[in-house]
Design a protein around this nucleic acid. Structure first.
Length: 625
RNA sequence: GUCCCAGUAGCUCAGUUGGAUAGAGCAUACGCCUUCUAAGCGUACGGUCGGGGGUUCGAAUCCCUCCUGGGACGCCA
């Protein structure tokens, strides 16, 4: 990558200068290379001279001048840049030689090549409770997880995607209780939608008749035992729902390698094994008195004794309830020991669909799991239980694994007042946003959003060629859910989410198709145009487009580093915008020979780069639209 | 009570390991298709970066403090 080349060259140069001056390299000297916002500041710039002013006891400008001279003599810098300038108060700006860059870019040399044999990364995402249809909050999770998997694969890492199915949880039990104690008369097209209503109804019934909640405990117990009629019913419900979820998410390009069922964890004896391990640690023990008497808990450090005044809040985490039933976190700890290959036990597997495996007791052995790094995509509200899993690993002495266990936390999706009102929520309080609630049956179902988006696109599109409106709709929704910073709580608004102009997936696909259409007319095969040797008299729009193309490897790298898909979205929108400016300003096919060559080549590079980025985000690459 | 996250244009959001004139989309107004895809492009309008203090060559970004909103701390997941 270009920025890496600059950093290493600057590092060489700075070291020489410090050695000459007899100085030490400052501890916290970070050489940062930026993409200047302004074209006149070059294509890359660094502020290292200003950082060194104190150490070298010289004005930044003179330091920058010296670094510039030494960089100009540096082989690697010389090979890529034609000019370096110093700008007040001490910036060093570097200008790419586009002819040289072009020959490298065409060889693909600049893109990150697959690393040498890398560690195995296990990504868990989706993990929706299998008791009702999915809503857009679930979809955000799946899109993030699926995109992270694609990002890591793109840079050559070995990735395995897991979807954890909580088929022994309260929520599934609730839906089962709902089957037996609520009434349904209206028809539903999908099983999950019927369950959605049933789940809301049973929660309402619990309020009216709290005794009914005892039923849940009974069902939960039967689910865990696994042999009764009720257990079979639960299994059927969960499996049917999971199939609907997978089918639905497939439309958004979301895919998995393996489903891990919570019931498998229990029945394969994973918990018993984990329990024996945990018992050897001082922080795991059974309470004999107090509120948690009879429970097995993970003890948390008392902080200064002030917690005594707040009996409502205590940090200890129950893993086994006093009635002997396991909590989610208990099973999650066993699961994570297994993910890292630390349990000494393994699952068996059977095919769930033609490409997805599923844990199954009478299945076959597979080399699944045994990861070096684990990424869990789970919303921010679950930071505490995730921390408990990590703490259990630490308590067992697995420090390295704990360090390589990463919770990718993201903000929840809530509803704008207008959209909440559409769903019948009372918005007289005029809050900024309204939470979705499965228990109350409040939420935007994925299928409903997709249907509505499809209709909107169908009504507004001006051409019927290429992708179907439904495929475009799914892509638009996926992009919408990925473009926000992970920590941002998405306040979902129907009007805003269904935009088809501006910073949207539709705009990106359209720009891609536009480039394809133009290149079709020159009958250019991909990558066929030879890179121009020189780029003289570049138009502003040509230059800015070139620059943005050059930045792609670095953006991808940063996004992977930070596990932040939104960087890629922002980059692509900028890239597409610059291409459209270029398109509007510079005739491509009608230009004269030399210019035409440059412009066709640029359009080709744009198409290839955008295609790469679209694929990393899991979006389609339509030749026509 | 303890801890975490956030507050940037009318709305929704980028930008936050300190950098050069704080950006985008939507909305509003006005323009641009006999010419490569108008799902596009252009112009205009729009800001005490929640308030106050501090650190320094330089702060939306770091520190302190206050205000406001959201979340976690459950024998739910």
């Amino acid at each position: 990558m270009i920025s890496e080349t600059i950093i290493s060259a600057v590092d060489d140069v700075v070291e020489q200068m410090l050695a000459n001056a007899g100085g030490q390299k400052p501890e916290r000297l970070k050489i940062i290379v930026e993409h200047p916002a302004n074209l006149t500041h070059g294509d890359y710039s660094t502020n290292v001279a200003m950082q060194l002013a104190k150490t070298l006891k010289k004005p930044p400008m003179s330091i920058a001048g010296e670094i510039k001279e030494r960089l100009l003599a540096h082989v690697k810098i010389n090979a890529l840049f034609y000019k370096i300038e110093v700008a007040a108060p001490g910036f060093i700006n570097l200008y790419l030689d586009w002819g040289k860059w072009a020959s490298e870019a065409s060889r693909g040399a600049i893109l990150p090549d697959p690393d040498r044999k890398s560690a195995k990364v296990l990504i868990e995402h989706t993990s929706i409770n299998p008791n009702k249809s999915a809503h857009i909050g679930h979809l955000r999770n799946s899109c993030i997880g699926d995109t992270l998997a694609r990002m890591l694969k793109r840079i050559g890492q070995q990735v395995e995607v897991h979807n954890y199915i909580d088929d022994l949880g309260n929520q599934l039990a609730d839906t089962v209780v709902g089957f037996m104690h609520t009434k349904t008369e209206e028809p539903f097209a999908r099983f999950g939608d019927f369950c959605w209503e049933t789940y809301a109804k049973i929660n309402k019934a619990y309020k009216a008749n709290p005794d009914l909640q005892k039923e849940r405990a009974v069902v939960l117990h039967e689910l865990e035992q696994g042999s009764s009629n009720v257990a079979w019913l639960g299994l059927l419900v969960a499996e049917r729902i999971v199939r609907e979820h997978l089918e639905e998410l497939k439309q958004f390009g979301v895919e998995y390698d393996v489903l891990v069922w919570e019931s498998s964890i229990v029945r394969e004896g994973f918990w018993s094994q984990a329990f024996e391990l945990l018992r050897t640690t001082p922080i795991f023990r059974q309470e004999t008195e107090g509120k948690l008497a009879g429970c097995w808990v993970l003890k948390q450090a008392e902080d200064g004794g002030s917690s005594a005044d707040n009996e409502d809040f205590h940090a200890d985490k129950v893993l086994v309830r006093s009635n002997g039933i396991l909590t989610y976190t208990a099973k999650d700890i066993a699961y994570h020991l297994w993910k890292f290959g630390l349990l000494g036990k393994d699952f068996h597997y059977a095919k769930f669909t033609d490409r997805v495996w599923s844990t199954q007791q009478d299945g076959v052995k597979k080399t699944i799991g045994h990861a070096d790094r684990v990424i869990n995509v789970i919303d921010r509200r679950q930071e505490y239980p995730q921390a408990m899993v990590k703490q259990a690993l630490l308590a067992l002495g697995y420090e390295q694994q704990a360090q390589h266990l990463q919770h990718v936390s993201y903000g929840v999706v809530s509803l704008s007042p207008d959209t909440a009102a559409d769903l019948g929520v009372d918005i007289t309080e005029r809050k900024h946003s309204y939470p979705m609630s499965g228990r109350q049956g409040i939420g935007i179902k994925v299928a409903d959003l997709l249907d509505r988006m499809e209709q909107i696109i169908d009504a507004k599109r001006s051409r019927r060629t290429g992708l179907s409106s439904r495929v475009i709709a799914a892509a638009a929704i996926r992009y919408y859910l990925l473009k926000f910073h992970l920590q941002t709580e998405i306040v979902f608004d129907f009007e805003q989410a269904t935009e088809i102009s501006g910073n949207t997936g539709v705009y990106l696909l359209y720009s891609y198709a536009r480039a394809c259409s133009i290149l079709d007319k020159v009958k250019s095969e991909s990558g066929q145009t030879a890179p121009p040797a020189a780029f003289d008299d570049l138009e502003l729009q040509e230059h800015t487009l070139l620059r943005q193309l050059a930045y792609w490897p670095e953006i991808l790298h940063t996004a992977v580093q930070e596990l932040a898909p939104n960087h890629i979205c922002a980059y692509m929108h900028e890239l597409a915008t610059l291409f459209n400016h270029f398109y509007a300003t510079c005739p491509i096919l009608r230009a004269e020979n030399r210019k035409k060559h440059v412009r066709v080549w640029l359009t080709e590079r744009f198409r290839e780069t955008l295609r790469d980025a679209l694929q990393v985000l899991g979006l389609p690459t339509p030749k026509r639209m």
